[in-house]
């Protein structure tokens, strides 16, 4: 549904996108994660036809973003990371305005607006002025706005940003519901555990490149060959951390309630060698196991070399 090939974008001397390749399957919820400045917003802006790439190509539902921007706009609903609303417009007028802007026939609009407000739990705000809504309500209204023309693809840039936990949970439920409506969703967020819950696939971006991509289970399980080890010893935990840190295969070491959480990149032989070295170093090992990671840990493992070490 979304296909990006070798996309470049530079802002002066800064490279925002560096030969980005990305593919989002039809009907999936694809989470784009990465540190600030990784290029997520730039990639999304290009896909939303708001920015021109310096090179490469991108297509949404078979429409090239450069040569067919209007066709692309017809199939996407875009929600930017920061957005405002119009003062002096009621919720129903706000949605009616955007429906009109997408050439939705007037005869269909009233019913459509009612349905969309119901979908985002804002039915009781039909006649409220949009500038008086809470931030969470505005986010939900923006999501409804994205859906006025029944787009096939939703591009949501940090939709949960700045929301309280309750509002985030509500938004998460709505996004899950969108999947049932057969929408393809490209979503970026820095709240990784939540992204892990709603996404089918994730892509991890760093320095303008997609360094890892695939189903959430695969990413959290493998993470480009990296694994999360939990090592527990009887005593001298801090000393063990210092002993492990400089080793080649170790990405990061964290102390967690008397145990160590080690992100380790290597084959079973090197893992075995690590265990042997610890034992030979004089530590009494009570636990040495690979643990299942969440998305945040997978993200740290994949981007860890640049970030943590």
């Amino acid at each position: 549904m979304i296909k990006v090939q070798g996309m470049y974008k530079r802002f002066g001397k800064t490279t925002a996108l560096d030969a980005l390749d990305m593919e989002v399957p039809r009907g999936s919820i694809y989470g784009l994660i990465g540190p600030n400045g990784a290029g997520k917003t730039t990639a999304m802006s290009i896909l939303a036809t708001l920015m021109l790439p310096d090179g490469g190509s991108a297509a949404v539902d078979g429409h090239d973003v450069l040569s067919e921007p209007m066709a692309v706009r017809g199939v996407i609903g875009y929600m930017p990371d920061f957005f405002g609303v119009y003062d002096g417009l009621k919720t129903c007028e706000y949605l009616d305005f955007f429906a009109d802007a997408y050439y939705v026939p007037q005869s269909r609009r009233k019913t459509l607006i009612g349905e969309l407000l119901e979908l985002v739990n804002l039915s009781d705000k039909y006649d409220s002025y949009v500038d008086l809504l809470s931030r969470g309500m505005k986010q939900r209204l923006a999501l409804a706005r994205c859906l006025v023309h029944d787009p096939k693809v939703l591009i949501l840039d940090e939709p949960a940003s700045g929301l309280d936990p309750r509002a985030r949970a509500e938004l998460k439920e709505i996004i899950k519901h969108l999947k049932q409506l057969d929408k393809t969703v490209l979503i970026s967020s820095h709240i990784l555990p939540e992204l892990g819950e709603i996404c089918d696939q994730v892509g991890i971006m760093e320095k303008g490149r997609l360094i890892s991509s695939g189903p959430v289970e695969e990413i959290t399980a493998a993470g480009r060959g990296a694994s999360l080890l939990r090592i527990q010893v009887l005593d001298k935990v801090s000393g063990l951390a210092d002993f492990i840190k400089p080793r080649d295969n170790v990405v990061s070491v964290e102390q967690d309630e008397g145990a160590l959480r080690v992100i380790f990149r290597g084959d079973p032989q090197s893992r075995g060698k690590l265990l042997r070295d610890i034992i030979e170093g004089g530590w009494v090992v009570t636990e040495f196991a690979e643990v299942r990671r969440n998305l945040e840990e997978a993200f740290m493992a994949v981007t860890g070399e640049g970030v943590l070490k």
Binding site: S45, A48, T49, L50, M70, R73, G74, I76, Y78, M79, P80, F82, F83, G84, V85, Y86, F98, A101, Y102, Y103, A142, R145, H149
Partner: peptide
Amino acid sequence: ERQTLNVLLTTRL
């Protein structure tokens, strides 16, 4: 400044 322009530009107008 109101951050409404980007959204407007992604419509079919």
